[in-house]
Design a protein around this nucleic acid. Structure first.
Length: 818
DNA sequence: GAGCACTGC
């Protein structure tokens, strides 16, 4: 640090003494960290030299600076710097177009002078594209090379230069991951959480961490930036506690937006069929409104494709019956599972008139919620908002996340309407009554933390050193059962011990960017010598579906899939698809010819490489078994090690299944390729659509359940049904043959366990284990599961303080049916 | 015999 010219300068006795020669050479001449005034910043911005590179400013810099000067936030530089100087935490509210995302971090950099302290100013974004594109823009604005002084960091891509980068845009998830290994976030001088109103899981957890960290690190400044006016909530959450005084809310800084007015129209009566009403609204706009493109919000792919078809038909009809009254209409679907090339079509220009002098054409984009936050379409003048979207909900009782079409919030409706006023004044047609808007809609969309399975989050919190997960200072606390379910799962996976503390295994699991079940499975996979294969399967399960099934080629697609299918189950089929893809990599049409998504496979390759790097870091061997039969068996057994809580048993001959321990009746999803119906199956996913289905399914042997997860498969905790009786029969047989089988197993599959799980091996359990469990052979992953009933029940009692009787949550939900 | 709103590590 001694050779840092800025630091030397700040320490020099002449500091602050004005001298024209000094300030000519040094744009930040009289700057005092965090006491900088707007006048000083503006002068530095106008300086001939770039203060960060010492190079003369380019012509492009000056041109961009002119654009920046008209941003609403630019005019507020002085008050912003004043509040920033005086406070550790502040809240900023700025509507779209205020320029807060690009300008505030730069203002902070000029005041904080992170480069003089070897620190970084961080600005988080919920989405990767935003982090990348904003960083690129800001690098241009500051006249520096992207990845040098200004950079970004997202999964798979760290575009920063350690030691040089002092302004870093990043996804909220990346910052959360950094916090796991540096709890003080010591490299940052200021952390800005942008788009906080979106309330992503990562942002919510970060807010809790930062609130706590602010007390321990008085030198850390925190800025929460939000678009909507729920700022009051942030203000009181981050209120300041001075000793002996009442808490005062964190200071609020408001920036006006820069959008055009949007006129709102409501229906007189509620619409019984919103899709039909939406189509009518679009055609009405097309017939009677001035030129300008239309954006219609619907909920999903099927609905969108259907609506597009109908709109096109009707529009063709209109132009055929009266060609001079309306122009041609172009209808474009938009949802995220569309290939990027087709998504690009939303930027196409509206069609030209069919002949000169005839009405101009119009573009209609029919989109999901992607168009609400992620993608901005220029030129939209009319928005049609039926008021619904698909939202994730989590039901902890049945441990299932599902997508439900639900009414949107007021904030969401306002966001949608705003999309009509980006380039000129617009109109928004809401297909619900004004009364419904005022009294029927929630103010804000429920934050993600209230709608998600929190297994992953709880593991991360444990890794972050949060001792009491239930009393963590959440902005919105999740339902107690949701936390219970997460704790329960992590305990069964041996990531948390019975005291709810992180085990060494859990500590490694938390490092992997995977669901806990997948992380567990991957970490123990060398014990079965199939880690190479499990790695591939894990990567394949982490990307969107690889199967492509075009509407008009369904039979061909299904036939192609049959050729890739492995009879034992979908997991092995995925492995086969990946390997076949690698073998045919030189053939660029292979994916297309075989109806699989090249994009998803490339993503899987990427994920696989990242996970392989992490396995190396934790010295988890990547190995295969030669013999195909043994290999497949090993894979199936390893799957059980992670997913023993997701097992179903066939009921009679009808072909339906019962989820073990839950007694939930399910059917195999039609996409499953098990042509025989195995008695016992393990599934990756439970989906609740028209009926309950299990998806991505593999046949297993019931003995494995008793062997690998004895705590979970303690039959005395099971409901009295056919599944229990079947397991009892298996257990009896199992006991009779245990001694001989164990011997052969040891020599067959488990020879190298010591080396692979040396780091993951937890301390030996304190209490005596039940007899039926495997003997305490060193290194066996089984020790992770060796939790006696008594121990588990004790832990449940600890958690039971947080049950809410009003929710009808009973003891039997927690398998305490003694 | 059916579907994947949207992000993120």
């Amino acid at each position: 640090m001694a050779d840092n010219p800025y630091l030397a300068y700040l320490k020099s006795p002449q500091r602050g003494v004005t001298s024209s020669t000094n300030s000519d050479r040094e744009p930040l001449f009289d700057f005092l960290s965090r006491k900088v005034k707007g006048r000083q910043v503006r002068k530095a911005m106008d300086h001939q030299l770039n203060p960060f590179t010492k190079q003369p400013h380019s012509a492009q810099y000056r041109k961009i600076l002119e654009d920046r000067r008209v941003l609403p936030v630019y005019a507020q530089m002085d008050p912003f710097l004043k509040i920033f100087s005086k406070n550790q935490i502040m809240i900023i509210v700025g509507e779209t177009g205020s320029g807060k995302t690009t300008q505030i971090p730069q203002f902070v950099a000029y005041s904080d002078l992170p480069h003089t302290k070897g620190k970084i100013v961080a600005c988080t974004q919920p989405r990767r594209v935003a982090a990348m594109s904003v960083a690129r823009r800001v690098a241009d604005e500051m006249d520096v090379q992207l990845g040098k002084h200004v950079g970004y960091s997202i999964r798979f891509e760290d575009m920063t230069d350690p030691g040089t980068t002092f302004l870093k845009y990043m996804t909220d998830g990346v910052l959360l991951r950094e916090a796991m290994n540096d709890k003080e976030l010591s490299r940052y001088s200021t952390i800005i959480l942008d788009e906080a109103h979106e309330r992503t899981l990562a942002t919510d957890i970060l807010m809790g961490l930062l609130k706590d960290l602010a007390r321990r690190r008085p030198d850390l400044k925190i800025i929460i930036m939000s678009a909507t006016l729920d700022a009051l909530k942030f203000q009181s959450y981050f209120s300041l506690h001075q000793p002996g005084e009442d808490p005062s809310p964190a200071p609020l800084f408001k920036v006006p937006g820069r959008t055009y007015p949007v006129e709102i129209f409501y229906t007189q009566e509620p619409e019984p069929d919103y899709v039909e009403a939406a189509i009518r609204a679009v055609l009405m706009i097309h017939r009677v409104e001035n030129p300008g493109d239309v954006l219609l919000f619907l909920t999903g792919e099927e609905e969108i494709e259907d609506a597009c078809r109908k709109i096109r038909l009707e529009a063709d009809d209109l132009i055929r019956t009266n060609p001079s009254s309306v122009g041609p209409l172009m209808c474009i679907p938009l949802y995220s599972s569309l290939p990027p090339q087709q998504q690009q079509r939303i930027f196409d220009a509206a069609p030209k008139p069919i002949q000169e002098g005839y009405p101009p054409g119009r573009k209609v984009v029919v989109a999901t919620n992607v168009a609400e936050t992620s993608l901005t379409i220029d030129g939209i003048v009319y928005v049609v908002d039926p008021g619904f979207s698909k939202q994730k909900v989590y039901n902890p009782r049945i441990r299932v996340e599902s997508l439900i079409v639900s009414p949107i919030s007021k904030a969401s409706a306002q966001q949608r309407a705003g999309r009509a006023g980006r380039t000129r004044p617009g109109k928004c047609f809401r297909l619900y009554t004004e009364n419904d808007f005022n009294s029927g809609l929630d103010e804000q969309t429920h934050p993600e933390i209230l709608r998600s399975n929190l297994a992953n989050t709880v593991l991360q919190l444990a890794k972050l050193g949060i001792k009491d997960l239930v009393r963590f200072d959440y902005l919105d606390a999740p339902a107690p059962e949701t936390l219970m379910r997460a704790l329960e799962l992590l305990n069964y996976l041996a990531a948390l011990n019975d005291e709810g503390e992180l085990t060494p295994l859990g500590s490694i699991m938390a490092e992997f960017p995977l669901d806990p079940q997948l992380a567990k499975m991957l970490i123990v996979s060398p014990e079965f010598k199939v880690s190479n294969e499990i790695l591939t399967i894990t990567a394949m399960l982490s990307v969107p579906t690889i199967w492509v099934r075009p509407l008009h080629q369904r039979a061909a697609a299904d036939q192609a899939k049959t050729l890739l299918t492995v009879p034992e189950g979908d997991h092995l089929t995925m492995l086969n698809v990946y390997n076949t893809y690698l073998q045919n990599k030189s053939n660029h049409s292979w994916a297309w010819n075989n109806f699989v998504s090249a994009r998803a496979l490339a993503q899987a390759e990427n994920v696989r490489a990242q996970l392989l790097g992490m396995m190396e870091r934790f010295k988890i061997e990547c190995i295969s078994l030669e013999d195909e039969r043994k290999r497949n068996l090993g894979i199936q057994q390893t799957l059980v090690r992670g997913f023993f809580m997701q097992v179903a048993h066939r009921e009679g001959e009808a072909g339906t299944y019962l989820i073990v321990k839950d007694s939930q009746v399910v059917a195999l999803h039609p996409s499953c390729d098990l042509d025989f119906r195995p008695e016992w199956v393990l599934f990756n996913e439970f989906v609740l659509t028209k009926r309950p289905y299990i998806r991505t399914v593999t046949a297993i042997q019931p003995e494995w359940l008793l062997e690998f997860a004895p705590a979970y498969f303690d039959l005395s905790t099971f409901p009295d049904d056919e599944t229990k009786r079947a397991l009892q029969r298996v257990a009896k047989k199992h006991r009779n043959s245990t001694s001989t089988r164990n011997e052969s197993n040891k020599s067959d599959m488990r020879t190298d366990t010591q080396s692979t799980s040396a780091q993951a091996k937890p301390k030996a359990p304190k209490k005596k284990r039940n007899k039926k469990r495997r003997p305490k052979k060193g290194g066996s992953g089984l020790v992770y599961e060796c939790t006696s009933r008594r121990q588990r029940d004790k832990s449940v009692e600890r958690f039971s303080d947080y049950f809410d009787p009003a929710l009808g949550f009973t003891e039997s939900d927690y398998d305490r049916s003694d």
